[in-house]
Amino acid sequence: MRPILLQGHTRPLTQIKYNNEGDLLFTVAKDTVVNVWYSHNGERLGTYEGHQGALWSVDVNSKSTLLITGAADNTARLWDVKTGKQLHVWKTNTAVKRVEFSCDNKHILFVTEKRMGFESEIYVFRIDESGTQSDTPVVVIRPKDSKATVAAWSYFDKYIVAGHEDGSVTLYNWRESDPEKQISKTVKVHQDTITDLQTSKDRSYLITSSKDKTAQLIDIETLDLLKLYQSDTSLNTATIIPDRDYVILGGGQAASEVTTTSSHQGKFESRFYHEVFENEIGRVRGHFGPINTVAVSPVGDSFSTGSEDGYVRVHFFDPDYFKYKFDV
């Protein structure tokens, strides 16, 4: 396969997201611009401009009408996907590290960084799809033991599941206003910081990646460990392929150590693991820096990786990939 290289950013990529139909690809990086691309040919549809700091996270609602971004300029912003117009700005005390729309598009969550005396917090706001947005959060969750690094909505928006710096995953009952009752369950699954957390298509289980060189498949309801994928490098991202029993992991050496070795030793490949058997089944190389973020098209025909080297690579799978049958 010949990947499509997208050069819309000048700094390391932080997150990429497909929309619900997989025809649009949203990318954010540590520069101040949000790009949207047609995924089938890599044509850039437009940019969303207004942020004044590095962007950390992006998400689009299931109808592809609204876009939300979180950035290091202590704001989260809501955009009109079609026109690129900024609709609302939420000001926070610290950088917004993670944003996500709920399944029903009625709520958003964002995770803020622990910095300058402020603790890490998870905010939930109500989104009015036609009118003005509220600046008062529905609920604010304050993780106690360790700061939250990533968060996602569970199935039917029942819980908010968050990954923490100490490697634990916590299920929050976000509809509860009493902080004592908010924590439904917490399990320490990783030895090191959780770098990414992505849910399956039906949001009944999730995959976490961590700096401890493993990725884990976890049941959302029970937080039981389902599968463990061991790699030889610290992982930045992991995703589940919707229509096949594979997962993709991405990582590599920390950015500060990259210049000391050649790209061969950097382990900058995207690694494919079998979801059930937990063994590595393939690799795709190409990046010159660690992979920061990986996303699979909801259609399952392509996947994209964003790297520290500033490139996004969109790969459409070869016919061989679809023909391959796993021999059990």
């Binding site: 010949r2 499509i4 997208l6 393939g282």
Partner: peptide
């Protein structure tokens, strides 16, 4: 937008 070098995914 550019097209990159051929890469292979051998499952």
């Amino acid at each position: 937008t550019n097209v990159g070098e051929q890469v292979f995914l051998k499952i």
